[in-house]
């Protein structure tokens, strides 16, 4: 598969998207490069390269869906950039944790206590729950919009009569999600 084909397939979604992800997942170049990058970050254990690989694919697909990849360089290079960032982030976190052994050194806003981690997870769970409360049509329309697909195409994909209907629908769905989020006690706490 060429880079353009992968990009198009991921933007198209459905089975094409899954096939494209599977292609990247199976590609020896993507795997080998991940392992080389992971190996160059000495703190990263060899066994952790697979986690880096999975996370890099997720971020790559997400980035492609948002239309961030402009095709100005090979997709593999773009992937390697993501991979390096993930490794560096991993390194930064580990470094930070090792340097700040004394809890008094840790700034309050950066204090990732088990309580705050639980709160973060709670936040994600609430977000997910709120999104799940939407109708199937709303979930689809909002996700497609987030992927950067035009309203005209969304109307075509979802079988809506025209672009105008899709816009109205998307606005209603967004308001519905906002209403759900507004009612959560979490919103007021934050």
């Amino acid at each position: 598969m060429t880079d353009t084909q992968i990009n198009d397939a991921i933007l198209k979604g459905g089975k094409a998207e899954k096939d494209a992800i599977a292609y990247i997942y199976q590609d020896e170049d993507y795997r080998t490069n991940t392992q080389i990058i992971a190996r160059n970050h000495r703190r990263l254990r060899l066994t952790e390269w697979m986690d880096v690989f999975n996370e890099s694919i997720i971020q790559l697909v997400k980035s492609l869906k948002k239309g961030n990849y402009k095709g100005d360089r090979p997709l593999l290079d773009y992937f390697k950039g993501i991979c390096r960032n993930i490794c560096a982030e991993f390194y930064r976190k580990e470094n930070r944790d090792q340097q700040r052994l004394d809890p008094r050194d840790i700034p309050m806003e950066d204090l990732r206590t088990p309580y705050l981690i639980a709160v973060e997870e709670d936040f994600k769970a609430i977000m997910r729950k709120a999104f799940a409360e939407l109708s199937e049509m709303c979930r689809q329309i909002l996700t497609l919009r987030m992927k950067g697909i035009s309203m005209r195409e969304i109307a075509k994909i979802l079988g809506l009569s025209n672009e105008r209907t899709a816009i109205t629908y998307a606005a209603r769905c967004r308001n519905r999600l906002r209403d759900i989020l507004e009612k959560t006690p979490f919103f007021n706490q934050r």
């Binding site: 998207e17 899954k18 999975n54 997400k62 909002l142 996700t143 906002r178 989020l181």
Partner: peptide, 30 residues
């Protein structure tokens, strides 16, 4: 603004979950 950001975050998270699930399926189907 806060609500809008939260809505974006929720949708983004949903999209990420979708991709994550897809990658997980592929990993199991390897």
């Amino acid at each position: 603004v806060k609500l809008h950001a939260l809505t974006d975050k929720a949708i983004d998270l949903a999209m990420e979950d979708e991709i994550r699930q897809m990658v997980e399926e592929i990993r199991q189907e390897e």
